[in-house]
């Protein structure tokens, strides 16, 4: 077993109204590993990602990032420099006037000088084949371009762990292909939330399923793939034959 990048132990979350979303989630992610996360709408997948980033406050359990237990606001400021989150909606993520500004925003906040930040941003954009978009205004990009640029803004911070929230949702075939290519080329540990098993099968080695607030299954991707097609609704725990 390799070094652990991220470890969740019995993580719980309930809305202020009292409605429980997560009632004890335990998961671990090794360095360099890619894990798929599936579950019905409202199962708490996005909530889980927000908890890891400290954007929501867990109501119980522990979260360890790179071996360090994180709980306080200060811990999470540290987490956000090491864990990158790709939001479901790219319009939420791209808030700077131009693409280059947006990609450089993270590095600048991490203390890079404008010159360094620009260099980092340009390097990341060229790595993703997006150099031609650098001076473009973010809101004029196509959906696929927005998604890839969002990914660039996250990668520019050189995260040790990457959380992708439905990265292929709304993308056309070609844009999705490009994204898959990029994700497969990363050596970063990833959690990928998605409803698309084909995508997960291709990009991840393990798939975990959330149901009723806990991890209902956590298995090798190829197994889950066949499993889901045999029982489309089979997200409740049961044994394989």
């Amino acid at each position: 077993m390799g070094e652990v990048a991220l470890e969740l132990n019995d993580v719980r979350y309930a809305y202020p109204s009292g409605r429980k979303v997560l009632s004890g989630v335990s998961l671990s992610l090794e360095k360099g590993q890619r894990l798929g996360l599936v579950g019905a709408n409202g199962a708490g997948k996005t909530t889980l990602l927000l908890l890891i980033m400290g954007l929501l406050e867990k109501t119980g359990g522990t979260i360890r990032v790179l071996g360090k237990e994180v709980a306080s606001t200060r811990d999470f400021a540290w987490v956000r420099k090491r864990v990158g989150l790709l939001f479901q909606n790219a319009d939420d993520q791209l808030f700077c006037p131009t693409v280059l500004d947006d990609v450089a925003f993270g590095p600048l906040n991490m203390g890079a000088s404008p010159r360094e930040a620009r260099k980092t941003a340009e390097a990341v954009l060229s790595r993703l084949g997006l150099s031609h978009l650098a001076r473009r205004v973010s809101h004029r990009l196509s959906g696929g371009e927005k998604k890839l640029v969002s990914l660039a803004t996250v990668l520019a911070m050189e995260p040790a762990v990457l959380l992708l929230d439905e990265p292929t949702a709304g993308l056309d075939e070609e844009a999705a292909r490009r994204l898959i290519g990029v994700v497969k080329g990363l050596s970063t540990a990833c959690i990928i939330v998605s409803h698309e098993y084909e995508f997960l099968k291709e990009t991840t080695s393990r798939i975990a399923g959330l149901a009723e607030g806990t991890v209902a299954f956590d298995e090798e991707s190829s197994l889950v793939h066949t499993h889901v097609h045999v029982h489309p609704a089979g997200k409740v725990p049961h044994k394989h034959v």
């Binding site: 956000r80 990158g84 989150l85 939420d92 808030f95 500004d101 906040n109 404008p114 911070m157």
Partner: peptide, 22 residues
Amino acid sequence: RARRVHQAMLCRGFSGRYPSLD
């Protein structure tokens, strides 16, 4: 949306200062 954008900004180390590249 404002809440989500703020979250996205926090994720990238926003601490009240809008840095400038230009």
